[in-house]
Nucleic acid binder design. Structure first.
Length: 285
DNA sequence: CACGTCACCTGCGTGC
DNA sequence: TGCACGCAGGTGACGT
C-alpha cells in the first residue's frame, strides 16, 4: 500500500482522530490513552519481541505521540516505541472496542482513558500478512538504515544531486530503495519520474543539475498532493484517499499522457510494474 | 556494487 | 461455472 502519503494519513488518524470515521461522532485520537490489553491473532505479524514480552511491556503504558518515518508508523510510549510497517496491504483502524473484529485483523490493542468509560481498539489489519510490528527501546535499531525524509528541510535539490551522482543505478529501483530515500513506493516513484520527465531506466549519475532539481521538486509535489488527498485507494483496499483519481502514469497503461497525449507504456523494472510516457520521458542514451 | 530471482501471503480480474 | 494465471501500494535473502 501504503507509501509515505498513505502512512502519513494513517499516522494522523491515530494522532488526532477522524471526524469522518465509521461513527457519527468520528473517532478520537489515541494520544494520552493507555493500553489495557493486547492480542496477537497472527503471531508472525510481531517481529520483535516475543508475544509474552510484547504484552508485558505494553499493557499499562500511555501513548505519548504518533509520528511517521519513511513508511513506518512510530508510536511512542513512555518507555518503549511501537513501530508498524504496513507493507503491501496493512492498515490501522481506531474504533470502539465493542465493534466487531474484521476479517484479516492480525493484532489489536485495547485502550482506556483516565476518567473515561469509553474504551477504544487499535486494530492492525493485513490481508497479505506482510506487515510487521516491533516493540523496541531504541527506534533507531529499526529505522537507522533509512535514507533522508523527502519532505524535511535537510533534503535539498543539491543533496539529491549529490546522492544521485554517487551511483550508476537506474532511477526507478534507486528511488524505491528506502536507504536512498525514505517513503517512496511504486506509485509515487512512477508519478515523480513522469512529472520530472525522466525515464525510469536513466542511470542516476547521468542526471544533470537541472534534472535533479526537477526530480526533487516532483518528488515533493507528488508526495504533498498525495497527503492532501489522504493518499490513494486502489484495488479492493479502500483507505479513504482519492489520489488514485489523479494519477498521471501509474496504472494508466494505454491511456493518454496528461501532458502530451502519447499512450502510457508499462515495462517491468526490478519485478515492479513501471509506467511512463515514451515522449515526455525519452529513453536515456 | 549492480542486478536478477525467489520468498513471504491473499484476493481480485481476466480469459479459456 | 470452474480454474488456471497474472497482477497487486514492500522488503529481504540469496546467487551471479
Amino acid at each position: 500500500m501504503p507509501e509515505l502519503p498513505e502512512v502519513e494519513t494513517v499516522a494522523r488518524r491515530l494522532r488526532i482522530g477522524d471526524t469522518k470515521g465509521s461513527y457519527s461522532f468520528g473517532t478520537p485520537g489515541l494520544i494520552g490513552w493507555r493500553v489495557s490489553d493486547v492480542n496477537l491473532i497472527w503471531a508472525r505479524s510481531l517481529f520483535q519481541p516475543d508475544p509474552a514480552e510484547f504484552a508485558r511491556r505494553l499493557v499499562g503504558q500511555t501513548l505519548g505521540n504518533v509520528s511517521r518515518r519513511g513508511k513506518f508508523i512510530v508510536m511512542t510510549f513512555a518507555s518503549s516505541t511501537l513501530l508498524a510497517h504496513l507493507r503491501m496491504s496493512g492498515d490501522l483502524r481506531v474504533e470502539l472496542d465493542t465493534a466487531p473484529l474484521q476479517p484479516h485483523d492480525r493484532a489489536w490493542l485495547a485502550f482506556d482513558h483516565p476518567g473515561d468509560t469509553m474504551r477504544l481498539r487499535l486494530a492492525f489489519n493485513d490481508p497479505r500478512k506482510f506487515g510487521r510490528l516491533w516493540l523496541v527501546d531504541d527506534p533507531q535499531t529499526v529505522l537507522g538504515g533509512l535514507g533522508p525524509e523527502p519532505l524535511d528541510p535537510p533534503f535539498t535539490a543539491g543533496e539529491l544531486y549529490l546522492r544521485l551522482h554517487a551511483t550508476t543505478r537506474q532511477l526507478k529501483p534507486l528511488l524505491l530503495d528506502q536507504s536512498f530515500l525514505a517513503g517512496l513506493g511504486n506509485i509515487y516513484t512512477d508519478e515523480a519520474l513522469h512529472l520530472a520527465r525522466l525515464h525510469p531506466l536513466t542511470p542516476a549519475n547521468r542526471v544533470t543539475t537541472e534534472q535533479a532539481g526537477a526530480l526533487w521538486a516532483a518528488i515533493r509535489a507528488v508526495l504533498e498532493e498525495g497527503i492532501r488527498r489522504n493518499g490513494a485507494s486502489i484495488d479492493w483496499v479502500y483507505r479513504g484517499g482519492d489520489f488514485q483519481n489523479y494519477f498521471r502514469a501509474y496504472q494508466r497503461t494505454g491511456q493518454p499522457c496528461p501532458a502530451c497525449g502519447t499512450l502510457i507504456q508499462r515495462i517491468v523494472v526490478g519485478q515492479r510494474g513501471t509506467h511512463f510516457c515514451p515522449t515526455c520521458q525519452p529513453a536515456p542514451g
